[in-house]
């Protein structure tokens, strides 16, 4: 009896101490990253944005909270329930945040890929008015992101989407788009999501890659 309690207590302590290795920052980041990866409504994204904003305020030298707050705003800016004005408001906020993140971490493939994602969202808010002028910018941003990290699966998947759009418009082959989507899928499939989340590294975008590769089949 005594022994058993002792063992349980020791085990408990061990578990607690393993957990304690994570700083409060890492702990709350992991929790919120888990939430945003599951979020699919405007209010959930707003909750995520608010949570990351609180974290960013306490950790002004970390780029990840700003990055995720920007990501939450971008998802809001892509929600079809919003009016074009509200979409632009959310995307302007996302742009502001991503600039702050860039000021902390320059030449970061993930941040630049997110910039391109925001540009894409701006295009989808007003395709007729912005398509011609901004799609070039989005392509260039994904290009820059991939120049830094050629294995960034998000930049690959989004770039594949852009390339597919161009191919559809010009009636040309989708080989380029599909090969990008395939590369992206392979990287997503091989990634250790838990390890990445533990390192606070982005893991989102798998669904985009999946729907891209599905359309290639």
């Amino acid at each position: 009896m005594n022994k058993l309690t002792f063992i349980i207590a020791v085990l408990l302590l061990a578990v607690l101490s393993v957990k304690a290795q994570d700083s409060p920052f890492q702990k709350i980041m992991k929790k919120e990253i888990g939430k945003i990866n599951k979020a699919d409504s405007l209010s959930q994204f707003q909750q995520s944005a608010n949570a990351f904003s609180r974290i960013a305020e306490l950790n002004p030298t970390e780029w990840q909270p700003l990055y995720y707050q920007a990501l939450a705003c971008t998802f809001q800016g892509m929600n079809h329930k919003l009016t074009p004005d509200k979409k632009d408001e959310a995307l302007a906020k996302a742009e502001e945040l991503v600039k702050k993140a860039e000021a902390i971490s320059a030449d970061n493939s993930e941040i630049i890929a997110l910039k391109g994602f925001i540009t894409m969202a701006k295009v989808s808010a007003d395709p007729a008015g912005r398509g011609q002028s901004l799609s070039g910018q989005a392509l260039a941003e994904f290009g820059r992101s991939l120049a830094i990290d050629s294995k960034n699966p998000r930049a690959l998947a989004l770039m594949a989407q852009m390339e597919a759009g161009i191919a559809r418009f010009f009636g040309s082959g989708t080989e380029k788009a599909c090969s990008l989507a395939k590369q992206s899928m392979a990287i997503f499939a091989a990634q250790d999501e838990e390890a990445l989340t533990a390192a606070m590294k982005p893991t989102w975008g798998k669904r985009i890659a999946e729907s891209m590769s599905k359309s290639c089949e």
Partner: peptide, 19 residues
């Protein structure tokens, strides 16, 4: 005002206002 960020300054404690 839904979606506002309500929190205690200098901490992670907080939430968002509902609809």
């Amino acid at each position: 005002v839904p979606g506002s960020n309500v929190y205690i300054k200098g901490s992670y404690d907080g939430t968002s206002s509902d609809v």
